[in-house]
Nucleic acid binder design. Structure first.
Lengths: 188, 188, 188, 188
DNA sequence: CATGAATGAGCGTTCATTCAT
DNA sequence: GATGAATGAACGCTCATTCAT
């Protein structure tokens, strides 16, 4: 019956957090984030119980966003390699398009504020990606290696690749391809 | 401002910082670090001008330590693959032996407090490693790719591998080998 | 601003305030009180203009409740001592029955939020009690002492007695008698 | 070897706390107290770990101060009544001289921030007073009543008496005597 | 009238850094 | 040089109160 909680505001806070964290690190103050979101100091805490809660939600939403972007318009019917490259390249495109999200995610990933539950949730979001990796590696040299390990290696490569794409956006496409080819060589 | 007398104290502070940062993150207070080092609050600032300075030095020293450990007792005369594996495996061994150093380095690497100069210094320390990679990739599929990029990919893989080695130390040797084989496949 | 509809809600808020203040002190938040009352945040302020207003009303109602309980079923026709003991003992019984009310009242009595007007109103409510004390002391050593002073001393004794009754409820009746006898000795 | 912690500053903080609490209640902010003490915000916390710690120390010191003042220059050799009156009257004199201390103590006594340990310490400080009460009541009607209870009743009376002395300082001496006579009647 | 989101001043506390000893 | 007390800005978070729904 009262003013309902607004998704718009919630998203504004998450977006503001992304921007502020990307530019100032995880020590960005909640006041700064609130201000950047055009919201009062206290309002931030009606949408997120604590700063750590905000960080965890942001982490999960970013992971989910990547997973969603990557899985969209899958190239059904084409080769595994093409489908995997499609995914890889969408991932890179997302990172280049939203470098602040990428930067924030990099910081969040190693932060102690992110709980094991959130890491698990992030992991779960990547299910489709993992399935594709599993298929791709099923007959190659990594066929007997736990999927988790393979995925972790992929993450390492993609993060490095993305870093180059962002730093040198003019050659982003080239870096993307080179990173992928290295990845595919490792995988198959 | 001249080099203060006691290298011992300086090292105690760096070691304490490593431990405290590994367990509490980069927001660990200078007071905590000083206490852990058995040194007074204020003394920390006669050895390091600011907290950021301390972090930068620590970053560089850790990078240099890895480079040194990795380069020791090189397997001259054996194959490139063996020499590279030797390096890779020493690196992993160091990380498993000093997981706090590894954890601290992971946090420092993405911190905004680390200046470009420090990143460059860390990079420079890896010169020998890079040279080995250059030799190893000289005739393979990555021969035309800038060494920086290749090294970055290697870092991504080694970081992922090390993470597994630390989390599952009983199988550290296996993870080490698997990570290396993936890397070598990518490289050659 | 006219008298709001539901006395039920008003009373629920007062009762909730009693409970919450007893357990958390006067710094209990209005939100907590509202929640405990099963009422919304904002509704509290349609029944009480401010938190201070709520506290003042609660103070007065508790004082009035004591006065009412104490004056009920007076032992007309018996001796002054018996009538006074009856009052004393009802007072103690009330406190033991509702320790939270007693605790809240103790805190409110010394709070700066309670206005002189409220203190006066609390005082007025005790008129019947004061009249009994006046009769009882009329021929004793305190006959020439202002009634206010005598009443204040009585309050001091009753508060101490009640404290013991609540802390050691198994012997409440004994404490009650002992406190009264001390009081009566003082008075007569 | 560094600047030593100064008792002067510690006492200034306690004195400032007394004043500020007396005038604004226990919700007085630590910032206000620090300012009143002529000390920085943060310094307050080098002398007292938390606000609650400060309140507990203040409570204990005030209790000890009363005990000390009351026990000074005891009237050895005179009657128990005279000795007890001496104590009573010194107590009242202290309260009239330092009404802010009295007010602060009244608030602290009922605060939830004061731990049982502190209450015990305050109790211990009153040992000499209790011994005098014990002697005085040894042959009277309260001889079989636990000393704690008798002391509690005394506190109730003295607090009420002191309240009148402070409110009406012109007649403080008269109130003091009247309160004592009531107390002595109760006791003997 | 009821609701609970919105507000922003204010809180207790921490902390990097300075400086008296 | 070593110490740790002093500083005060900044932090995460709370809260009484207002007001859109």
């Amino acid at each position: 019956m009262a003013r309902p909680r607004s998704d718009e505001k919630r998203n504004a806070i998450l977006a503001a957090a992304t921007r502020v964290i990307a530019s100032q690190g995880l020590s960005a103050s909640t006041a700064m984030i609130a201000k950047e979101a055009g919201v009062s100091n206290g309002s931030l805490f009606t949408y997120f119980e604590t700063k750590a809660d905000l960080l965890n939600r942001l982490y999960i939403e970013l992971k989910e966003e990547i997973a969603e972007v990557v899985a969209k318009e899958p190239h059904q019917g084409t080769s595994l390699r093409d489908r995997t490259f499609h995914m890889w390249s969408r991932w890179g495109h997302w990172a280049v398009t939203f470098p602040e999200k990428q930067k924030a995610l990099t910081l969040l990933t190693v932060s102690d504020d992110i709980t094991p539950e959130s890491h698990q949730a992030g992991h779960d979001a990547f299910r489709e990606i993992r399935e594709l990796i599993q298929l791709s590696s099923a007959h190659g040299p990594m066929r007997d290696i736990p999927l988790y390990f393979t995925t972790a290696l992929m993450n390492g490569l993609s993060e490095a690749t993305i870093h180059f794409m962002i730093e040198d956006p003019d050659n982003a496409a080239m870096h993307c391809v080179r990173g992928f080819e290295a990845f595919w060589r490792m995988l198959t």
